[in-house]
Simulated assay, not measured.
Amino acid sequence: MNPSLTPRIAFVLTLPPLLWAGNAVVGRAMVGSVPPLALNAMRWWLALALLLPIAWRVLRAPQEITSRWKHFAMLGLLGVGSYNALQYMAVQTSTPLNVTLIAASSPVWMLLVGRVFYGERPSARQLAGAVLSLAGVLLVISRGSLDTLRQVQLVPGDLLMLLAILLWAGYSWMLARPPTHFRGEARPAWGWAEFLLVQMLFGTAWATLAAGIEAPLTATTIHWTPAVIAALVYVAIGPSLIAYRAWGLGVSTVGPAVATFFANLTPVFAGVMSAALLGEPPRWYHGAAFALIAAGIVVSSLAPRRA
Rank of each mutant, 00 (worst) to 15 (best):
L167P: 02
P226E: 10
L75D: 04
V12R: 01
A24N: 11
K70E: 04
G79Y: 04
A211Y: 07
S300R: 10
A164L: 09
V99H: 04
L302A: 09
V140G: 05
P188T: 10
A205C: 11
G76A: 11
G255R: 03
I141Q: 05
L37F: 09
G250Y: 05
A205W: 01
W206M: 04
Q87A: 14
T221M: 12
A164H: 08
G76K: 00
S133E: 04
P17M: 04
R305K: 14
L59I: 06
A124N: 09
V12C: 07
L39D: 00
S123T: 12
I54A: 08
W284Q: 12
Y83I: 05
S142A: 15
F202C: 07
M200H: 02
P35C: 09
V258R: 11
L163V: 14
P107S: 06
A41V: 03
G271M: 10
L19E: 03
V91L: 05
I222M: 10
N98C: 07
L50M: 13
S145P: 05
L241Q: 07
A207H: 07
V91D: 08
L39S: 11
R305F: 03
A73K: 02
L302K: 11
L59H: 03
R187K: 15
L163Y: 06
R115Q: 11
Y285W: 12
G248C: 00
S240F: 01
L77P: 00
I141A: 13
F182W: 13
F290W: 14
Q153L: 14
A104M: 04
L146A: 15
Q87I: 15
F117M: 14
S123A: 12
A90Y: 05
N40R: 06
A295Y: 01
P216W: 09
G248D: 00
R283W: 04
A295G: 15
S172C: 04
N98H: 15
T95N: 03
L278T: 10
Q126K: 15
G296P: 01
V233I: 09
W173H: 15
M30A: 13
F290Q: 11
L163A: 15
V58R: 02
S240D: 03
A219S: 14
A41G: 01
E194Y: 02
D147T: 12
H181C: 13
G212S: 12
